[in-house]
């Protein structure tokens, strides 16, 4: 009997926790589906009537489609570049022998934890000098660099678990290292690379500071920077802002539904045992 009561208590606690976890997200969707008058009258209730007006308005009031395209391009290029660069480095750390091997890995771990804000002022001046400010390549370059430490750390941890004798046998057979990487290691790493790509893509998609500072043309922004800046202009149009916020989250939600394990494994990998 007591056991039963405690199980009920636990379920109640967990359900409450789920409500608290989901409510801000639910609020975004619910508000996005309201008209502005409806929201002003009743900020807490369900939409009455349901309205898709705000979703349509997002594309008229802001260059939202362009922002989304920008975010996608930036994510694609920087994540791809960082993955290739980090895979090469991690392969060397896991299977090679060179001076400074442990120092190189420790350096990457330390840089993983470095505050990005420390870099933003000097990198801005560099981008101004080379004429890349207000262009997407400015953030693509910086994001690529910022993603490398975690990617090297994550891939090295994985590659070290691979059986060394497979690699050694291939070396003895005369296969070159680029060939071993492509033919043997890469096929074994696909699931891990997928996890890394998911985590890095989310990081780039969600990044605000560099996007805000480096991309100052209205059409040239990423989704997050665009939304953050339009907050001031449309703060009294809650349904419009929430529709924009919901659209910015939607790709992440879909990805999470289909690859929850990759998210969890990748995002918790900075915590060792």
């Amino acid at each position: 009997m007591r056991r039963h009561a405690s199980a009920l208590g636990q379920q109640a606690l967990l359900i409450l926790l789920c409500i608290v976890s989901l409510y801000p997200l639910w609020f975004i969707l619910q508000t996005a589906l309201k008209t502005q008058q409806d929201y002003t009258r009743n900020p807490t209730d369900l939409p009455a009537p349901f309205s898709l007006q705000s979703f349509a308005a997002v594309f008229r009031a802001m260059p939202f489609a362009q922002w989304t395209l920008n975010s996608a391009l930036v994510a694609l290029v920087s994540v791809a570049a960082a993955t290739v660069i980090a895979l090469l480095a991690a392969y060397a750390v896991a299977f090679g022998r060179f001076r400074g091997q442990t120092t190189f890995l420790s350096l990457n771990i330390a840089l993983m934890a470095l505050p990005p804000v420390a870099l933003v002022v000097p990198l801005f001046t560099v981008m101004v000098q080379v004429g890349l400010i207000n262009t997407l390549p400015s953030v693509m370059l910086v994001y690529t660099g910022l993603l490398i430490p975690f990617s090297v750390f994550f891939l090295t941890n994985f590659l070290r678990e691979l059986p060394l004798d497979v690699i050694e046998a291939a070396t003895i057979d005369g296969a070159s290292h680029p060939r071993i990487l492509l033919r043997i290691v890469l096929p074994l790493s696909l699931a891990t690379l997928f996890t890394l790509i998911v985590v890095n893509t989310i990081w780039v998609w969600n990044e605000l500071l560099f996007a805000l500072v480096f991309l100052q043309n209205n059409d040239g922004r990423t989704v997050m920077a665009g939304l953050a800046l339009f907050q001031g202009r449309y703060s009294v149009n809650e349904p419009l802002m929430m529709a924009g916020a919901f659209l910015s989250i939607l790709p992440l939600l879909i990805l999470y539904l289909f690859s929850q394990r990759a998210f969890v494994r990748g995002m918790t990998s900075g915590i060792g045992k």
């Binding site: 976890s21 989901l22 975004i28 939304l227 929430m242 992440l252």
Partner: peptide, 16 residues
Amino acid sequence: IVFLPYILPATAIGLS
């Protein structure tokens, strides 16, 4: 469910 907030963009969550 409880992990979901962690992946959401702080910008969108902050707006909410």
